[in-house]
C-alpha cells in the first residue's frame, strides 16, 4: 500500500495545484479587459461618480492579488459572484440585493445538472457500443469489416459536431419525426420524456465519442496480440473470441479505462456546440450566451467549472490506470 499510496497522494496534490494555477490563468485573463467591471456594468451611461461607487462596492479599487484571493475564497464557498445580466436587470427593477436570484451559482446549478444528464446518457450508450465494436474490430482485423469501420470512424471523428447534429436532425427529426429537434427541457418532466428530448444531442455526441473510443480500444487490444502469452493461448487451440476476451482484454484494461475517461473529458468540449445546436439548456449554452453578451462573472465561473471537470476526469483516468496495474499494486 505504501508505494501506491504515495503515488496517489502525489497525483492528487498535482491535480489540486493544476486547478489552482488554472484559476490564476483565468483570473488574470479576465483582468486583461480594457476598463473594468464597473464600466462594463454601466455601459454607455457611465459617469465617473457611478463608476467609482460600483468599483468600491465590488472591491475593484483593491490590488489584484487581494481581489484574486477573495474571489478564490468565494469560489471555494460556492459563491461565484453576481451575473452582469442579472445586475442590470435588478438595477432597473430596483429589487432587493440579497434575494440571491442574480447569483452566478444559482444560474449554473440547474444547467450543470442538465449537462451531467446529457453526458451520462451519452456515456451509457457510447461505452458499451464502442467497447463491443472495438473488440470486434480487433477480432476481425484487416478484413472488410475492419476497413469499413476504420473509414466510418475516421469520418465521424473528423466531421464537425454541428454537421453530424444537422444530419441527425434531418433524418430523425424532420424527414422521419422520431425525436424532437429542440431539447426543450424544463422542470417536472418525467424521466422517459426527458430521455426522449435528450436523445438527439446524446446521439450526436455518441457518434463522435464512440469513434474515438473504438479506435483506441482496437489499438490497445492489437498491441497486446503480439505478446507470447497470447500466442500460447492460440496454440492451445482456444477460439479467437476467447483469446481476446479472457486473455487480452484484462491486460488492455488500463489503456481502455484511460480512453473512456479521456473521452468523457472530451465530451465537456463537445457539449458546447451540441447544446447550442439543440438549444439544450445546459452549461455550454449558458457559456456561449454569456460570451456573446460579455457577462464576465458567468464566463469566468463556467470556464472554471469546465476546467475543473476536465482536470478531475484526467486525474481519475490517471489514478484508475495506476490501480488497474498489478505491478504497481503489489510492488516488490
Amino acid at each position: 500500500m505504501g508505494a501506491i499510496g504515495r503515488i496517489l497522494v502525489q497525483r492528487l496534490i498535482l491535480g489540486v495545484l493544476t486547478l489552482f494555477a488554472v484559476s490564476i490563468v483565468i483570473f488574470v485573463a479576465v483582468n486583461m479587459l480594457p476598463g473594468d467591471f464597473a464600466e462594463a456594468i454601466l455601459g454607455q451611461g457611465a459617469t465617473p461618480e457611478a463608476v467609482e461607487a460600483i468599483r468600491r462596492d465590488l472591491g475593484l479599487d483593491r490590488p489584484m492579488v487581494q481581489r484574486y484571493l477573495s474571489w478564490l475564497a468565494g469560489v471555494l464557498h460556492g459563491d461565484f459572484g453576481t451575473s452582469f445580466a442579472q445586475a442590470n436587470f435588478r438595477s432597473f427593477t430596483g429589487s432587493e440585493t440579497g434575494s440571491g436570484l442574480g447569483s452566478v451559482a444559482e444560474q449554473i446549478k440547474p444547467r450543470f445538472q442538465n449537462t451531467i444528464f446529457l453526458a451520462g446518457t451519452t456515456a451509457a450508450i457510447a461505452v458499451p457500443v464502442s467497447l463491443t465494436l472495438g473488440v470486434l474490430a480487433a477480432l476481425y482485423r484487416n478484413t472488410v469489416f475492419d476497413r469499413i469501420t476504420n473509414v466510418a470512424t475516421l469520418t465521424s471523428i473528423s466531421s464537425p459536431e454541428f454537421f453530424l447534429a444537422y444530419i441527425l436532425i434531418l433524418f430523425l427529426a424532420v424527414l422521419n419525426p422520431v425525436f424532437p429537434s429542440l431539447s426543450n427541457i424544463h422542470e417536472g418532466l418525467s424521466f422517459t420524456e426527458r430521455l426522449r428530448l435528450t436523445m438527439l444531442p446524446a446521439l450526436t455526441l455518441t457518434l463522435v465519442v464512440t469513434a474515438h473510443m473504438m479506435r483506441m480500444t482496437r489499438a490497445a487490444i492489437i498491441n497486446l496480440l503480439a505478446s507470447p502469452y497470447i500466442e500460447m493461448a492460440r496454440l492451445k487451440g482456444l477460439s479467437p473470441m476467447r483469446v481476446i476476451i479472457v486473455h487480452a482484454l484484462p491486460n488492455a484494461l488500463a489503456p481502455i479505462i484511460n480512453v473512456i475517461a479521456l473521452n468523457l473529458a472530451y465530451l465537456i468540449t463537445g457539449v458546447v456546440v451540441v447544446e447550442v445546436v439543440f438549444v439544450y439548456p445546459g452549461i455550454g449554452q449558458l457559456f456561449v450566451d454569456s460570451v456573446k453578451i460579455r457577462d464576465i462573472p458567468v464566463v469566468q465561473a463556467c470556464c472554471l467549472v469546465f476546467a475543473a471537470a476536465y482536470i478531475l476526469l484526467n486525474l481519475t483516468a490517471d489514478i484508475l490506470s495506476i490501480l488497474s496495474n498489478p505491478r504497481l499494486r503489489h510492488p516488490k
Partner: peptide
C-alpha cells in the same frame, strides 16, 4: 489543463471587448 474550445471562448470574450 483548460479545454481548448473553452479557453478560446474565454479569450474571445476579452478580445471582443478589446
Amino acid at each position: 489543463a483548460i479545454p481548448a474550445l473553452i479557453f478560446a471562448l474565454l479569450l474571445m470574450t476579452i478580445a471582443s471587448a478589446w
